[in-house]
């Protein structure tokens, strides 16, 4: 599978309060959450982001709370993947569990805001189409790939445990 999209660039330690502030957590509606995605950092993000766009950030993306509303809001905006140098652990597992692709690469500084990038999941290659630079990324370990292949944690669990 390959995806292509325009990038939205953020810095390090983008936390879950940045992704979706707690004042909006009185709902679990994906569309409602999406409206406020990233608003502390960029008030117009949810208005301007297009389906298929890709978030690119530096270290420790998604740190802070366990709120699954964060990857839900990002997905709800139509964002197709998040690329970062590293991810906070609860955000990482939430994203795997709900099927939001995360890519870890070191060279996020070679990607500028608004660049067009392509992600080739099969071969683990990210290409910045704006400057034709390519980077390899590690695929998920087999254990996690298995969860993803089965359609996320709930489907994987249902298959194994719901008779």
């Amino acid at each position: 599978m390959k995806i292509k999209g325009k990038t939205w660039k953020f810095g390090s330690n983008v936390n879950t309060d940045d992704i979706i502030p707690a004042r909006y957590l009185n709902t679990i509606d994906e569309k409602e959450l999406a409206k406020h995605c990233m608003e502390s950092l960029d008030i117009n993000f949810s208005k301007n982001v297009k389906r298929g766009d890709i978030i690119v950030a530096d270290e420790n993306f998604g740190c802070g709370s366990s709120r699954e509303h964060a990857p839900i809001a990002i997905k709800g905006c139509g964002v197709s993947a998040v690329v970062a140098k590293s991810f906070a652990r609860i955000f990482l597992r939430n994203s795997i569990n709900i099927g939001l692709p995360l890519i870890e690469i070191e060279q996020t500084d070679k990607i500028k805001n608004g660049d067009e990038i392509e992600i080739d999941f099969e071969n683990g290659i990210l290409t910045n189409l704006s400057n034709n630079q390519s980077f390899h990324f590690s695929k998920y370990p087999e254990f996690l790939q298995n969860i993803i292949k089965n359609g996320g944690l709930m489907k994987w669990t249902a298959k194994k445990y719901i008779k």
Binding site: F143, L153, M154, Y161
Partner: peptide
């Protein structure tokens, strides 16, 4: 350890966590 809502839902069914 802290996990997400989906982890909690799966654990309610299976009694397990990855």
């Amino acid at each position: 350890t802290g996990v997400g809502s989906t982890d909690a839902a799966a654990a309610m069914i299976s009694g397990k966590v990855w």
